[in-house]
Design a protein around this nucleic acid. Structure first.
Lengths: 198, 198
DNA sequence: CCAGTTAATGAACAACCTGTCTGTAATTGA
DNA sequence: TCAATTACAGACAGGTTGTTCATTAACTGG
């Protein structure tokens, strides 16, 4: 008695309809009836599964994050020490597969709550990691770990949003990772067209 | 006949009420009546000045951006060549003065539209600047200028949001700018607690 | 394949919010 | 002071929300 097939069908259809419609018209413009109509489901059925629009959206994004976490787990273990960019690459691949959803989330649809919460969560663990590294190497960090973490995730998310919004995929994921690593190692100044003065 | 005093009073009150309430409950949760009640203005008066919630919000954020642009103009001229961080510092100061509004915008309230449009606009001009620099120095950029621009604005916005959300202002603006410049010049790897291997 | 359980359906409901439009009263600028 | 403009309270239809209910259809375990 895993789960009634009808339940699965309804939920899936509603989730898919939501994603389609958010891309077309934006989250706030949507009506519950719009969604049920697109999903070909009775309006009453919607409320049998979800409290409201927001609830449905939250479930969809939660699933996405769970999927991401699952894919990231092995890559994280590898690069716990010494940053190789493997997790970033994995995230880009995930984003390519779930591009529609990534677009929605990164556009800040749904009051931007999913996005901000994701960003904050990333920043928290990243800052902790930076602090741990500094302590491990017994160095007083020149840069506030908190700020450094914000730089890190801000940059990731900015690039990610740009990447998934591209109609014609300009850069392969591997190239993006290479450039990000390059920037992290050597700084941005070199890359912006300046010749180093020293 | 600059403008009727009543008009000014009503508009100001409504704008201020909006900002207060968005901070308290979030944009989407708000009702036009909530706003007019807080502003102590009749509901009909609201519609005499604005089409709807979104319209009011758009005017408020447009004013904010106009104020920012005005303050940034002199700083931009100075650092057109060679990046000194002056515009960033000026933005941080502006953000400190208008903290409530910055919080709202950076949280992506109002469907995140103001935020995303601001980010995209910044990225566009930044990318153009990077391209121009590369051409001026006759170098083939190792990093896609488009990507570099996204890194740049993503990092700015990430840090800015973190900074204005802090309850107790942890770092003075000058320190933030110093760290950002440091990162841009020397890269992030140094800062994250690693000892350089070479 | 059957019987019992569970979900989907369409319809109807009050409550709320929206945006518009009145006639009237109060402020304003000249 | 006077004419013009604005704010006001109230009422209005239209749309959305979230709930309930009786009925029909689909599914699952045996």
């Amino acid at each position: 008695m895993a789960e009634d097939r009808r339940t699965r069908r309804s939920r899936r259809a509603l989730g898919a309809a939501l994603v389609e419609l958010v891309l077309e018209r934006g989250f706030t413009a949507l009506t519950v009836e719009d969604i049920t109509e697109r999903a070909d489901v009775a309006r009453a059925t919607f409320y049998a599964h979800f409290r409201d629009k927001e609830d449905l959206f939250a479930r969809v994004t939660d699933d996405l994050l769970a999927g991401l976490a699952e894919r990231l787990a092995p890559a994280m273990a590898d690069s716990a020490v010494g940053f190789t960019g493997k997790p970033v690459l994995e995230m880009l691949r995930h984003a390519r597969e779930e591009r529609d959803l990534y677009r929605i989330v990164l556009r800040g649809e749904g009051d931007g709550k999913p996005l901000q919460m994701f960003a904050d969560a990333c920043a928290r663990v990243t800052a902790e990691e930076f602090r741990a590294r500094a302590e491990r190497n017994a160095v007083e960090p020149r840069i506030d770990p908190e700020l450094l973490a914000r730089v890190w995730v801000g940059e990731q998310l900015g690039v990610l949003r740009w990447w998934v919004e591209q109609e014609t995929p300009s850069l392969p994921a591997e190239e993006v990772v290479r450039m990000l690593l390059d920037l992290a190692m050597r700084g941005r100044y070199w890359a912006s067209g300046f010749e180093p003065s020293a």
